[in-house]
Design a protein around this nucleic acid. Structure first.
Lengths: 259, 259
DNA sequence: CGAAATTTTGATCACGTTCAACTTCAGTGG
DNA sequence: CCACTGAAGTTGAACGTGATCAAAATTTCG
């Protein structure tokens, strides 16, 4: 933890406990030195209030933002007035993926709650990748995870019934929050309105509401205020064909002996 | 082209003309030397016949396959017997993304036509990333592109009407084929049965068929055998809210001067 | 406390699924 | 060469699901 001390005041929590780092550690072993070189890229701590736009569809965005806390949604507005939420952004997620890889962002990102994030420029990050290639690989791993999440959303809306979709959604959020220490024992805080969830799942608000009621009456879901509990996780997993992702570790340079 | 000559016999076409290289060149400048070091990873040329499984859901897969020609589909079978195709794999695409990043692949890949691909082990590729970090970045760019494609499929099935979906799908395939030189002037060969397309779009086969008929009668689509023509690309783009992806270039090491 | 946002309930209706039959086409062997 | 086969494409009718619209109930927040 020694190497990170110089930046503690900015990060305001031990680096190793930042949810983004917790996520990286799923698949990448980082020395204190690695961690420190990553943190030196951070240009600013940003606080964002609920409802603020972070990325706007059609405009250039060339930063990476590591979410320390708070929630956001990445969405696209269609010409017919409908909105589709491509992915929800949770603590530990990166904002600017995929926006920073495009001339112009193709989705918007809006804060769903008060948020705090650390921001660096994408060019700084790429420079780091040239000196420490494992960060380029880490970025690949993150992007692959993003791709899988989106693919599952496609399966949800394409081929699953509304109760299956909702069950899958709840389990996905649960498992993503668990990785960063914000959920355990099938229980977590769900800071999303039903309108947001319906735009993720491709359902109308009334129908989502009825679907929630159904899962509740089937004993698969309990809601108290913002708190969600899944009393029978296994049944939910069966119902929704949910499988937790197990990412491999990024191989380390020295372990890759030429055959 | 000098540097690649030693491997010409294996690649069987000039390296620069391989569709995967054409795709990479969208966003990465590669020297002959870079290209050669990539091609040295190739362990085998593989030919696959129609209907063969390349990746199987639930099994380990630790390779990258660069498609020289032919088509495949990446799909998941649900317990209720339905199938959802997460993405179609075209010439220039990579097989094993995302499968190689997981303990066990979470989707299957099946050849939809005769195929040919060049294969290397994922570990060999990662080793290359440590010596030439731009390949790690390239992998990120590819994964981001994959994520965006999947996200658009989610929007398709979540919030677009069947004609919009189909229009978007046709334009997506067109623009992906165009990048690798297999389509031009809004015309291309579409080697997918209606059953495949319906599993991409989350529609039943009869309804997809009627939707095809509708686009045809609206003068937005002409089909002769396998050949597809989109007589009014602009209207299709309007109808489906389609936007071509413009990926940024991967910054080169020397262009990233510290501020 | 009042205003606004969110959640819940109800009634109607259109869209897309399902299932079935029929057609067309490509490939194969008699 | 034509008959046969199986796959792919096309069409039709009936049904059910989830959207839509509207209104009431509840919660949140200024």
């Amino acid at each position: 933890m020694r190497a990170g001390d110089s930046h503690q005041s900015r990060a305001q929590l031990p680096l190793r406990r930042h949810p983004f780092v917790a996520r990286l550690e799923q698949f990448l072993r980082m020395s204190d030195d690695d961690l420190d070189s990553l943190w030196q890229l951070i240009q600013a701590d940003i606080r964002v209030s609920k409802g603020r736009d972070l990325v706007v569809d059609g405009f250039e965005y060339r930063k990476l933002g590591f979410v320390e806390f708070g929630f956001a949604s990445r969405y696209k507005l269609l010409r017919n007035g409908k909105r589709h939420i491509v992915n929800l952004i949770l603590p530990g997620d990166v904002i600017g993926l995929p926006g920073s890889f495009l001339d112009k962002a193709c989705y918007s990102v809006i804060a769903v709650s008060e948020m705090k994030l650390q921001v660096c420029s994408i060019n700084e990050y790429v420079r780091l990748c040239y000196s420490r290639p494992q960060f380029g690989l880490a970025l690949s791993w993150l992007a692959v995870q993003e791709a899988i999440t989106c693919a599952e959303h496609g399966i949800n809306t394409g081929r699953r019934t509304p109760p299956e979709r909702l069950a899958h959604f709840l389990l996905e959020i649960y498992s993503r929050l668990e990785v960063v220490g914000l959920a355990s024992k099938y229980s977590f805080d769900l800071p999303f309105s039903q309108e947001v969830m319906s735009d993720v799942l491709g359902l109308s608000v009334p129908h989502l509401n009825r679907t929630l009621a159904k899962l509740r009456s089937d004993g698969l879901l309990e809601i108290t205020g913002r708190r969600v509990r899944l009393p029978d996780g296994k049944s939910l997993e069966m119902l929704s064909h949910f499988q937790a992702l197990k990412l491999t570790h990024v191989p380390q340079a020295r372990s890759l002996v030429r055959v």
